[in-house]
Write a protein that binds this DNA or RNA. Structure first.
Lengths: 353, 353
DNA sequence: ATGAAAGCGCTAACAA
DNA sequence: TTGTTAGCGCTTTCAT
C-alpha cells in the first residue's frame, strides 16, 4: 500500500488503485481552527452553538469540522466546564420490566436534551448501591437518579457532598432528597385492600418475594395490612421466599399458599407473581375468581391478555422515568411529585359465593 | 450559623451547638498530596494502585484521601490517560426482556472490572443508532457494544475511525467488525423448522412483528423458510404488524392468522408473541397443540410456566452480554464467538391427528 | 465578533 | 520509591 502524509492529521494511501484519506492523529479544536482559519475559542462557540459568531464563520467552522471528521472530546469539555452531560441512573434490577420502563422514560427524555444515561444495577443491595454511586460520582454527572428512598448513610453523605442533583424515583414517602417522583406505595397497598374487601373477599393471603430487599413491596404490604385492620381484619397468611420475583416463583408460592392455608384470595407483591399464580390456578383447574381471587400490582401489559384480565394497580413507570430525567437536567424543576396510580378492576377479583 | 474556615477546602460551622466540617472547595490530588505530605504523582499511583510506593506511603495517602472525602475526577483522569473506563452499550429496545438480559450480563462483568456502562436505545432505528454512536464516541469509551450486525455506512465509518473497540452482539452472520458474540439466527430458524416438521406439522403460518426493523427475526424467518423449502414446503401464510413485539400483539395476530388461514401450527418471531398466541388459544378454547401447534423463540422463563410449556429455542442472553463485555475490556479477547442455542421441546408442538 | 491565554484535575515521562 | 513537569482537549475570561 503506497502512502503519503497529507496535512497534519491525514494519511493519503493507495489501495486497489484508488487514493483513500485516512486519519492518523486525533482531530482537535486546534486542527479545526487552523483549517477554518479562525481561533480555537471561535470553534468552541460554534460547536456548542453558544456565544456569538457570524453566519459566515459558522459555516466555515462547521464545514471544516465536517471534512476533518472532528469528534469533540467531551471528557475535555466536561473537565473544563466542571460538569459532564452524563446522568447516572441506578435501578435495583433489570429482570423486572418495571425498571426497564423507567429506563426507557429516562433515556427518551435525555436523548432529546443532549445528555447521556449511565446505568447501574444494585440487585437490591445497598452496599452495591453505595459502590455504584461512588463510581458514578467520579464522572461528575449532572444528576443521579436513585430508585426508592431508602439509601445507606454513607451513600447519602457522598451524594450530599457532591453538589450533584439527586432525584429519587418510584416512591414518595420518606424521600431523603428534595426531588422525588413516584407514588405512595402504602396508598397503593391500601387501595388494593379496599378493592378486595369491597368485592367481598375476607380470608386473604399475601404472596411475595424478599421483603427485606424490595422495600417498596414491603410498604405496600404494610398499607394493605393497615387497611385490613381498619375493618377489624388481618391477613390469613403471608407466603414469601428469599428469591427474585418471577412468574415461576409466583406459581410455586401460590400453590404453597393455597395448599397450606384456606384463603379466598391472594394479594401479590407484584404482577409477575400474580401472573404465575393465575397460570398455576389455570393448570390446577381452580376457578378464578370464584374459588380464588387474585390481585396484583404494577399493571403489566401481559396481565390484560390473560383469559381473565388480571385485577391490579397500574403505575406509569415510563412517565416516572421521564419526569425524573426532566427534574435531573432542568435547574428549575424539582420537588416531590406524586403521580399516583390507577386501579385496574380486571376479572380476577370478584364477589364470593 | 457561626463558621470559620479550616484548611484549604473546609468550613467549620457551628450548628445545633456542635461543630461540623463541611467541604467548600473540591478536593483534588494536590490537596490529598499536601495533606499526606507527598507528591501528586504518588497520590495518583496509590489511588490507582499502579506503580510502586511503600506501604507506609500508601496508608498515609489513603487516610488523607479518606478524611478529606476525596473523590477522583475520572474526566480528568481519562483525559490525561487518553481513554475512559466507559463502555457504551446500544440496544434496540428495553421492552423486550432479551435486551435487559444482555445488559445484565454486560453490567455484571463491567462492575467487577472497574468499568462503567453507558447505554442507549435505538428503537430499531439505524439513524438513532448513528446518533447514539456519535454521542458516545465523544466520551472516548474503551469499547462500544452494538446489537446485531446491521449498521449504517456512516456509523461504521465513525466507529472505524475511532480506534475504539467494537463488539457486535446477538448475531454472528455477516459481522462487520472483528469481534462478535451471539448465534446464527438463520440456524435457529432452521432448527425450529426441522423440529416442527419432525413433529408432523405441515401447514405452518408465521406470526411476527415489523420485519424491516427486527432484522434478526427476519433472518430466523429466512432460515425457517429455507429449511421448509428443502422438504418441498412453504409457509402457509405470514402475518405481521408494523408494531413493537408484545404479548398483546401476539394475541391479536394469532387470532387474525387462525381466522384467515387454515394453519396447523404457527412459528412466531419470538416468545412474547407466542405467549400471546397461547393465551388467545386458551381463551378461545383451541386445543394446543392438537388443533394448533405453537413455536416460539428466546426461551423466556415465562413460557415454561404456561399450563403447557412453550416449545421454543433458548438463547443465553446474559452470557452473550457477559462475553461481549469481556471482549470489550480484555485487549487479547476477540474474534467471532458463536454460543449457539438450545431447542426446548416443551408441549406446544406435537404430532397432528 | 473574535483571539490569546489561563486553567480544569489528572497521568505519564523523566529525574532524582 | 518518589517528586517535578508537561501536557490531555476543551471552556472561559478578558482583551481587542
Amino acid at each position: 500500500v503506497a502512502s503519503i502524509f497529507w496535512q497534519r492529521c491525514q494519511l493519503l494511501l493507495l489501495r486497489g488503485g484508488r487514493w483513500h484519506i485516512e486519519q492518523v492523529m486525533k482531530i482537535t479544536v486546534a486542527d479545526v481552527a487552523t483549517a477554518a482559519g479562525v481561533g480555537e475559542s471561535t470553534v468552541s462557540r460554534v460547536i456548542r452553538n453558544d456565544g456569538s459568531f457570524s453566519a459566515k464563520t459558522r459555516d466555515r467552522v462547521l464545514s471544516a469540522a465536517q471534512s476533518l471528521g472532528y469528534v469533540p472530546n467531551r471528557l475535555a469539555g466536561s473537565l473544563a466546564g466542571a460538569r459532564s452531560k452524563l446522568v447516572a441512573v441506578i435501578v435495583p434490577s433489570l429482570t423486572n420490566i418495571v425498571f426497564a420502563d423507567v429506563l426507557r422514560g429516562v433515556s427518551a427524555f435525555l436523548e432529546g436534551a443532549g445528555y447521556q444515561g449511565v446505568f447501574g444495577v444494585t440487585d437490591y443491595d445497598p452496599e452495591k448501591e453505595r459502590r455504584l454511586v461512588e463510581s458514578f460520582l467520579q464522572y461528575r454527572p449532572s444528576a443521579i437518579l436513585l430508585s426508592g428512598v431508602e439509601h445507606g448513610r454513607e451513600t447519602i453523605e457522598m451524594l450530599r457532598r457532591s453538589d450533584c442533583k439527586v432525584v429519587e424515583m418510584l416512591d414518595t414517602e420518606g424521600a431523603v432528597f428534595p426531588n422525588a417522583v413516584g407514588f405512595s406505595n402504602a396508598a397503593a397497598g391500601a387501595a388494593a385492600a379496599r378493592f378486595m374487601l369491597s368485592r367481598g373477599h375476607r380470608r386473604i393471603g399475601y404472596v411475595g418475594h424478599d421483603l427485606d430487599k424490595d422495600l417498596r413491596a414491603a410498604k405496600r404490604l404494610r398499607g394493605f395490612q393497615q387497611e385490613l385492620a381498619l375493618g377489624g381484619l388481618e391477613l390469613a397468611s403471608i407466603t414469601t421466599a428469599k428469591a427474585a420475583s418471577s412468574v415461576t416463583l409466583g406459581s410455586q408460592l401460590t400453590q404453597q399458599c393455597v395448599k397450606a392455608d384456606d384463603v379466598e384470595a391472594i394479594y401479590f407483591a407484584n404482577d409477575d407473581l400474580a401472573i404465575g399464580g393465575y397460570l398455576w390456578a389455570l393448570a390446577a383447574g381452580i376457578d378464578v375468581p370464584g374459588d380464588l381471587g387474585l390481585m396484583g400490582h404494577n399493571g403489566l401489559e401481559m396481565g390484560a391478555v390473560l383469559p381473565r384480565p388480571l385485577s391490579t394497580i397500574r403505575t406509569d413507570r415510563v412517565e416516572i422515568g421521564r419526569m425524573a430525567a426532566e427534574m435531573a437536567i432542568r435547574p428549575d424543576a424539582g420537588g416531590i411529585r406524586d403521580i399516583s396510580f390507577d386501579l385496574v378492576e380486571g376479572q380476577t377479583i370478584g364477589r364470593i359465593g
